[in-house]
Nucleic acid binder design. Structure first.
Lengths: 134, 134
DNA sequence: CGCTAAGTTTACGTTAAGGTAAACCATTTA
DNA sequence: TAAATGGTTTACCTTAACGTAAACTTAGCG
């Protein structure tokens, strides 16, 4: 600690460990412009403050929800260009709604097939001789 | 038609067009063992009968539901080894249930974030001066 | 007969989201 | 001082599900 980490600063490895991801992932997000280039310690080591940590957490949260990195980039660009949540948030909600719609479709189809399967299985079970079509 | 297509036989291109996929896709399924090697016309052209068509349709149906080709291979192998729907069907239902569970999780999380977003947006809208944190 | 359309195989390209390795610093510990 | 640890960059590897191109054969049409 030749260069004191300004208090509340976290190095990349610790941050990764804390969030259950790898350093590669964090660097990757930086590489594609999702995370801003962080400050460096004298040795060149990336260190993150409260803001960076929050941003990364937000990214992970969105990812969990099925938002792709590309979509996040879009949002990020949008934010960079407008600096206004009044523009960004509706777009985010739009994207989320899109995903929700897709998932709802999937669900309805999946439950439909589930029923079909149940019926099929019933039919099979009712047959005395198990000699049926594939 | 030097080699008469035995009636009810479809060539790969027509089959693809009929199902809205490409011939590459069909060959790929064959390549990874999901579709059996079909009969060939004298010229080497793949042609499919009722059974092959049904199998392909079933594959597409499962794919629509988010079942991966790898999972289908597992089912296919299972069927090849046991020849029993009484073994295959429960596994298929199991896989489907897994997908349903995942999707349900996604949905609950997505709706949670949606709420958070709504709240966040509200707060922002209520502020007189639009100067807020990213 | 020549052309085009459609088929064949082989094989490399693509996208997303990182994994992994190489070669190299810098710091801490024995 | 040597080793171990953890960071750095650069760059190629991976998986899924095909796309696309090359080089070739075959069938049908005019």
């Amino acid at each position: 600690m030749m260069n004191p980490p300004k208090l509340e600063m976290v190095q990349i490895g610790d941050l990764a460990k804390q969030l259950g991801i790898t350093t590669r992932t964090i660097r990757y997000y930086e590489e594609i412009g999702l995370m801003p280039s962080p400050e460096r310690l004298g040795s060149g080591v990336r260190c993150y403050g409260k803001e960076g940590v929050l941003r990364l957490k937000f990214i992970l949260k969105l990812k969990e929800l099925g938002i792709t990195l590309a979509e996040m980039q879009e949002l990020s660009d949008l934010y960079r260009s407008t600096q206004a949540q009044t523009v960004v948030m509706p777009r985010l909600v739009e994207i989320l709604d899109g995903h929700i719609a897709k998932i709802d479709q999937k669900i309805s189809r999946i439950s439909l097939l589930r029923q079909e399967l149940a019926n099929y299985r019933k039919k099979i079970a009712e047959l005395p001789n198990p000699k049926n079509q594939p």
